[in-house]
Design a protein around this nucleic acid. Structure first.
Length: 222
DNA sequence: AAGTCTCA
DNA sequence: GACA
């Protein structure tokens, strides 16, 4: 049975997924519009693009990013790069609103001092999906992943440490935040094909904002 | 293989 | 589950 803990008054509450992973329902609490503004600013400078996998397939999810490093994929493989290959310019800086939300969510999930250096922004149109995978291109595997959902609801696929592990299907609504790390840091996860839907802030699309600490954080003085 | 296809 |  999932751990269910209310987070103050209102619909916000936490659900435990497994050791090290937590779902913060309604965590964004009305900041979705401001987050969409921030995404618009970022996309004006580093436009959404559909990346190619090492196997030569085109991903259905459109991506961009911000921070000192951005995730990139092409025939050469998956990696984090300091310059957006599409524009030849550094990725846009990470807006304070986004890093604040990420740190607060990590704190709430039990991961203190989360300081992401990369923020991947995923845009799902109807039918777009992300098949089961691990986030393993980061050096700092001791740091968690923080994932925000805005817009049309999606089905999150939450597996285990092996690709063949059983997969749970979890509805993610606009405003939900998932945090995973520690023993669940390398859990396989994905998103089922986005159903047709409508959200006042995003139309028929869903946006996912995922924060990672790629480089190991500097040790903190005692 | 962060995708797609095939079989039972 | 197989498959670059």
């Amino acid at each position: 049975m999932d751990l269910l803990t209310p987070l103050g008054p209102g619909p916000r509450h936490r659900e435990g997924l497994e050791d090290g992973a937590v779902l913060l329902r309604g965590w964004l609490g009305g900041r979705e519009a401001a987050i969409m503004e921030a995404i618009g600013d970022i996309a004006r400078r580093s436009p959404f693009r559909m990346l190619t996998t090492p196997g030569g397939r085109t991903m259905s999810v459109a991506m961009t990013g911000c921070g000192t490093l951005g995730w990139h994929s092409d025939r050469q493989g998956y990696r984090y790069v300091p310059v957006d290959p599409t524009t030849g310019r550094p990725w846009p800086a990470m807006p304070e609103l986004l890093s604040d939300v990420a740190r607060e969510a990590a704190d709430e999930a039990g991961y203190a001092s989360f300081a992401p250096d990369a923020c991947l922004i995923n845009r799902y149109a109807p039918g777009a999906r992300l098949s089961l995978h691990q986030d393993r291109d980061e050096d700092a595997l001791s740091e968690p992943i923080v994932s925000l959902s805005v817009g049309v609801a999606a089905t999150f696929l939450w597996g285990g440490l092996e690709r063949s592990s059983p997969t749970r299907r979890i509805r993610l609504d606009s405003g939900d935040v998932v945090v995973w790390g520690g023993p669940s840091r390398l859990v396989y996860h994905g998103v089922a094909a986005l159903a047709r839907g409508w959200h006042p802030l995003t139309g028929d699309k869903r946006f996912n904002v995922t924060f990672r600490a790629v480089r190991r954080p500097a040790p903190r003085p005692c």
